[in-house]
Write a protein that binds this DNA or RNA. Structure first.
Length: 249
DNA sequence: AGCACA
């Protein structure tokens, strides 16, 4: 039988990073509210260092959430990609580059001139563009209740009717097969079996030789796959947090 | 659509 490309929508997964990049956000929402809400929704995945969003035309509808750990970011992507937020499904990926707050902590921070790709050309009337970058560090992040399984309405179908064919990561609907990513290349099927077979309904692990780092894990039904997914989401194998989603059928 | 921290 044939199987869909393992890779989601043909776009590569950016390398794991502690910052997530979110787009397809509802542009009508005011920035402050947007950031507050993002903070609320994402704080259960771990401590958030900063939430950034901007109002400029080039950056509308997008935001960055900087976590303290890459593991949190990874879990947040797996759990929240496609989540309806102000009536639109969030599209989430790892950020392409390291956030300044993180670089500052690293000691690798280099002031912006080096990092700018292209400067703005003259001839444009300069407009005030306010974007604020509130840092709501301690204020709003509550410690997470323990367990990620509590994401509410993922069951609502994110893309009802006509969908653009190549979304970066169109989340597959819940089903009995899990798609596991971000595994160390040397991960043995047996190791995965040990992990997943603790969950009821486990059937088998399938790994794709041609594509190291991923695996399919089949359960008897979707309730059982869901339990396993939430139980093992972000579980680290040799430092790599597993990223588990439903497989595309 | 669009990956920044002015």
């Amino acid at each position: 039988m044939e199987m869909q490309e393992a890779n989601q929508g043909g776009s590569e997964l950016s390398s794991p990073n502690q910052t997530i990049y979110i787009n397809n956000l509802n542009e009508k929402v005011k920035l402050e509210e947007l950031k507050k809400s993002l903070n609320l929704v994402f704080s259960k995945f771990g401590n958030i260092l900063e939430v950034l969003a901007f109002k400029t035309l080039k950056h509308k509808g997008q935001a960055w959430v900087v976590f303290e750990n890459a593991e949190s970011a990874s879990t947040a992507i797996a759990e929240m990609n496609g989540y309806l937020f102000y009536d639109k499904p969030m599209r989430i990926q790892f950020a392409k580059t390291k956030s300044d707050v993180v670089a500052k902590a690293d000691g690798t921070f280099v002031p912006r001139e080096k990092r700018k790709r292209h400067e703005e050309k003259g001839g444009k009337k300069k407009k005030e563009q306010h974007h604020d970058s509130t840092q709501m560090g301690m204020a709003m992040n509550s410690a997470y209740p323990g367990g990620y399984g509590v994401t509410p309405p993922l069951s609502q179908v994110p893309y009802p009717g006509g969908v653009k064919p190549n979304l970066p990561e169109a989340p597959a609907p819940p089903n009995n097969i899990l798609f596991v990513q971000n595994l160390p290349h040397e991960t043995a099927p047996m190791m995965l079996q040990v992990l997943f077979s603790q969950y009821p309904g486990f059937k088998e692990v399938r790994m794709v030789e041609a594509k190291p780092g991923i695996a399919f894990v089949e359960f008897a039904d979707e309730m059982q796959s869901t339990v396993a997914m939430h139980g093992l989401q972000g579980f680290k194998i040799e430092q790599n947090p597993m990223l588990i989603t439903y497989a595309k059928k």
